[in-house]
Design a protein around this nucleic acid. Structure first.
Lengths: 146, 146
DNA sequence: CTGATTATCAGGTATACCTGACTATTTTGT
DNA sequence: ACAAAATAGTCAGGTATACCTGATAATCAG
């Protein structure tokens, strides 16, 4: 098998390898910080609540682009694990508001800390300018490739 | 939800978004080229055979880092779809050699053509230098991040 | 009071793997 | 030369993840 990062390696594969590497590092740091029971898909819930706590299930589902039933499953799991809780919506008795618990907030803080550490490691590795260029190139690809 | 490619977006997320974009484009081009029946995991088989046709099942499994049973499943599927075929190994009657069929070879050619088109689109988008810098940065992350 | 909306219950599908047990061979050690 | 051990592949069945559809009860809005 040839060197997977040689000149002929397709750029999409380089993107995948680099992404896998960073997420492996993040995963490892999270494990070391004692967050061992959440899965990637739980991010669908946690990251939206980090921006706006107390969203309704349907809003979460819409934002994540999945069905309310699927979102309900993730919320069930996170509720069992103690990261979120359902509270009644006082204005609409059909609805429930999904809130982060203390554990959920702490977990989000740890995740952001870990992400910050990886960001710092990338800056050490590449330097400020090259990291900035990388981020710009990635944003350009995401926004403009067709 | 904030702009997913703003300044605060974690670099791993930018990597993931950019990768998803490129692979969506590749997937779409493959569909348009009439390759609609293979799944990403079949790449485990196809790409290794592209480099070295006639590998044994166990060699493929080792190279892909999965069990021979799992590799057997992918080979079964690709054989049913007509992309590969099992031929006896004349030197070892336990073993079989996995070969690309004409259809399999043509499919690999189409995939490389599509990958080439995406590579060209990236070069148009970023320019030769910035694409080269991007690739270098990605390789550095893959090889050196810890 | 009819129709839409919120959430949930029940059950299903696709993907990408895995383990354990087995047969047919080949290789190894005596 | 030959028994024991290793190897190649397959059969059967299982697990985890990330979704989905359809149906239904409660509630709200016009």
């Amino acid at each position: 098998m040839p060197d997977p990062t040689d000149d002929r390696t397709p750029t999409p594969r380089l993107l995948s390898l680099a992404y896998n590497k960073t997420s492996a590092v993040i995963y490892q740091h999270l494990q070391e910080s004692g967050i061992t029971d959440t899965r990637p898909s739980h991010g669908n819930v946690m990251e939206h609540l980090a921006f706006e706590d107390g969203l309704r299930l349907n809003d979460l589902a819409t934002r994540a682009g999945i069905t309310p039933q699927s979102m309900g499953q993730f919320v069930d799991e996170l509720e069992d694990l103690g990261y979120v809780e359902r509270r009644p919506d006082l204005d609409d008795r059909r609805a429930k508001r999904i809130h982060l618990t203390r554990k959920g907030k702490r977990s989000n803080q740890v995740e952001w800390k870990v992400i910050g550490e990886v960001e710092a490691a990338l800056e050490t590795l590449l330097g400020k300018k090259r990291l900035g260029d990388l981020r710009k190139a990635l944003a350009t690809i995401t926004d403009s490739l067709s």
